[in-house]
Nucleic acid binder design. Structure first.
Lengths: 201, 201
DNA sequence: CACCAACGAGAACGACCGTTCTCCACCGAT
DNA sequence: ATCGGTGGAGAACGGTCGTTCTCGTTGGTG
């Protein structure tokens, strides 16, 4: 029963809702505001998304796609797992400097709806777990222990919340340096100084 | 015109609101629920707090006090700035393992109200800035550069959001190890290996 | 041209929330 | 004992929100 351009309409509504939710916070955006931003009608929206919660989950999925496309773009020039790993922070750097940067949408959603919406919690957990898996994979390819992956992931998360609250543009670069130190330190402990103390700047 | 037990009443209302806000999220708690939890009356509450936003700000101040008392308790046995620094993560460890741990109240509030309440934003920023200043002071006492302080702070923030989302009890210990590595690495670069590679476990 | 299904605009509905107001019971002072 | 004012319980008010419904229009089909 899906109309041909239903997927396009869904995408437009999700993008509109994403803009509003991210800037104003989910609970501060009524469905009528989504309708206006999407240039659609309430009937159409509720035909495609049974409830606001479904729309929120779809928006989070959209954010996940944005995240990975940004990560991949930043990793384009990386030639080693180590460079790929550190390029995450280059992606963050560009993102943090955007005018309307307002923190990680997943963390914000978790703070706002974590207590009331298990589906939102699941979506947030899934995203964060996939990031951790990505980092873990790259760390393993460097021959390092999983502990280092968790530590680098802490820097990724900490950079996002700190950048959101302080609005300091240098946070990502600082996190990148810290990650390089952690990787180097784990490297010398693991198998002796392969490329000792290069330290990335 | 302040009645003698106004301060006690304020404290009880703030504590009640804190419990509800933290567990359910601020916007999911009506003033009537606060009234019930505090065993007070709406008139009394609105006599002491002109609006819900004022109550939220007071709750955040209360959370700040809780934070610092926890940090100081954990730092009680610390004999060096370095130990004091790392004891922050011991405090976090105990906190993360509490049953009703639901992340950092400041980060959650920022995600929920950051877009609509400048006063909440200011309170959150103030708390995070004071934590950063505390870390910076201890790092300086170790003779290390301010950059290291920012990096350790990223671990503190990252540990809080990661622990909230994953509910993994080992996050604080992992962050502590990472912080020790960062301190050691900065130490050997700054003034040669004073106590090289002790590394705290 | 007549008809039916789908669609948009927006009203309507029920629930909830922040804030204020009403009313009554209580309590110390005269 | 009476009175004034204080505080509590809870109704009331205005607003918003998620969701559904009505209704008029349209555009394709016989």
């Amino acid at each position: 029963m899906t109309r041909p351009d239903d997927t396009a309409a869904r995408a437009g509504i999700v993008a509109a809702a994403d803009r509003l939710f991210y800037v104003r916070g989910i609970q501060n955006v009524g469905m009528d505001a989504v309708r206006a931003e999407a240039g659609s009608s309430l009937k159409r929206i509720y035909g495609l998304f049974p409830s606001k919660e479904d729309l929120v989950v779809a928006v989070l999925a959209h954010r996940t796609a944005i995240w990975w496309s940004g990560v991949e773009r930043a990793a384009a020039g990386a030639r080693t797992p180590r460079e790929r790993l550190l390029s995450i922070f280059d992606f963050l750097d560009g993102w943090f400097r955007e005018d309307d940067f307002r923190g990680c949408a997943f963390i914000n959603s978790f703070g706002e709806l974590g207590a009331t919406s298990p589906r939102v919690v699941a979506a947030v957990r899934e995203q964060k777990e996939s990031v951790r898996a990505y980092v873990r994979d790259l760390v393993r390819r460097e021959g390092l222990a999983d502990d280092v992956a968790l530590q680098v992931d802490l820097l990724v998360e900490g950079a996002q919340t700190t950048a959101a609250i302080t609005r300091d543009g240098g946070v990502a670069a600082q996190a990148r340096r810290a990650a390089a130190v952690l990787l180097d330190a784990a490297g010398v402990e693991a198998d002796g100084p392969a490329e000792p103390g290069r330290g990335d700047r």
